[in-house]
Amino acid sequence: MHALWIVRRDGVPMSKTVAKAVLVLDTLAEGPRTASELARGLGVHSSTAMRMLQPLVESGLLARGSDGRYRLGLRLAELGQQVLEGIDLRSVARPHLVALAEATRATVHLSQLVDDRIVYVDKIEGAATIRTWSRIGRSVPLHTSAAAKVILAALSPEHRRRLLAGHTFTRYTEHTITDPSRLDDCIAEAARRGYATDEAEFEPLVHCIGIGIPDINGRVGAAVSLTTVRGALDAAEVRRLVPHVRNTASAIAADLGHQSH
């Protein structure tokens, strides 16, 4: 029997089996599904869907929960990390981060959404003598970080709820946001103005401005943030610093292939 093929947008043929497997992965990226739900989305019988799903489960690309629903497997996280290392956002962004740190004498971070965590992937220490808690590879606190807020603001509501599901709103300072509805307001505000702030919410005296970095498809899964150490970050200073951070984010996005309109 001859294999059936379809043509991708770039003109390269792709087998229908592979195309359906990709559709399964894209569907499950939005949330768990039952075999019947996946079968309907694929336009195939449930038994056909099961035959397709089984090798994906065995390879670790998918996992089946106790409720019978399928979700993305941990193997995808491993492969995703390898892809990130191959694309190497960090090496693309680093010269821009260094330039921002030198221009502002502030500490600069690069954060990225990896699987269901937002992590620090690079850090350029500024001229301040106080060192911050952040470390490369460490998870970004979702309810305090400017970078996390601006990335969360760019996600679909469902994806955002999944990341925040079960999140503990630990109080770190007197300014920490501990009310989920207040965080929702901050995320909405970040979406409206195009940047987010951390006003001494995780560490006393530490203030941050974060701006998202769109990829070649316009999706925001990373952010650059500027960290200053001082008693307060007033409105005038925010207006002065935001363009520096925005220009850096735009330059990184351009190097990643994003075309602004």
Rank of each mutant, 00 (worst) to 15 (best):
V206C: 01
G210W: 01
R239N: 06
D215G: 12
E203K: 03
R239C: 05
E203G: 02
L205R: 07
A222Y: 08
A235K: 07
R219Q: 10
V238M: 05
F202L: 14
N217M: 11
G218A: 06
T227M: 15
E203W: 00
V238C: 01
I216Y: 15
F202I: 03
I216T: 14
V224Y: 00
P204K: 10
V242F: 00
L226E: 10
G231L: 06
R219D: 15
A236S: 10
R219Y: 07
G210K: 00
V206T: 06
L241T: 11
S225C: 13
I209Q: 11
V229D: 10
A236H: 07
V224M: 04
F202G: 11
G210S: 08
S225L: 12
V242P: 05
A222Q: 05
T228Y: 03
R219T: 07
V224N: 10
E237G: 11
R219G: 07
N217R: 12
R239H: 12
T227R: 13
G210V: 08
P204Y: 05
T227G: 11
T228N: 03
G218Y: 14
L205T: 14
A223S: 14
A235M: 01
A222I: 02
V206P: 02
V220C: 00
L226A: 14
I211D: 06
D234I: 08
I213V: 12
A232P: 02
E201Q: 13
C208Y: 00
G218F: 07
I216P: 04
A223Q: 03
R240K: 04
I216N: 02
C208D: 01
